[in-house]
Design a protein around this nucleic acid. Structure first.
Lengths: 112, 112
DNA sequence: GACAAATTTGCACAAATATGCAAATATAAG
DNA sequence: CTTATATTTGCATATTTGTGCAAATTTGTC
């Protein structure tokens, strides 16, 4: 159970943890409209096939969504889902400070 | 430069995006006291040298802190730093959305 | 100084990964 | 039907990565 979740999270982080894939995410982040692969592959100056493969990996991890439109694929970010997973991990990491019960579901204040 | 920041973030995510390394992080997360490598390497059943290398990678990315104590190295999580970086990315990803919500725990997003 | 314990490093190796090119596929347009 | 465009897939390849074992290193204990 826990292992599977950890593996899934590791897969997500690994998907995001590659420069060109993260660049694709940032590119999708900046443009307000969804984009196709030809447009996206320019941001990291790689072959279209490479961008296609990267976007597939991101889609497998739920980072992006794919919509078929004619001969194009329109990609868009699964914004809240990804953000929530990242925040969940952040909460777990930050919430582990000494004297915090393991089952409490409270959100610790951002420490600054 | 933006590229460098993106690369650094990708490196952090890559460091976290490996099962055994993430297990080490979770292990450090659960135990209230800092731990040495011998203790930590049990959680992912790998050789001590492997755990040492993984912890080194985590340290290079600022995920963990190392303190020398005798012949041991005591590892502890850089909790708020890592959490803040993850939340920063989450904010960037979610902040590019026209309307943000769908979360039970709503966190005011950073300025865009 | 001799020995034990914790950690790092060198080495080897298998597996995974990122990449580009060319071919195949899908679909729109003429 | 033919052509053009967007994407995927097959193949080859160079690089990275995770791993274990043994040796080296560091440091505490006797």
């Amino acid at each position: 159970m826990e292992r599977i979740q950890h593996q899934a999270l590791a897969d997500l982080l690994k998907a995001l943890g590659e420069f060109n894939r993260l660049s694709l995410v940032y590119e999708l982040c900046q443009c307000d409209k969804p984009r196709n692969a030809m447009c996206l592959c320019e941001c990291c100056s790689v072959d279209a096939s490479v961008a296609s493969r990267h976007l597939k990996i991101l889609a497998e991890q739920g980072v992006v969504q794919i919509k078929k439109k004619g001969r194009e694929r329109i990609y868009s970010l699964n914004r809240s889902e990804v953000a929530n997973q990242l925040r969940s991990l952040a909460d777990q990491i930050e919430g582990c400070s000494p004297a915090v019960s393991t089952t409490t579901n409270h959100r610790p204040r951002k420490a600054i």
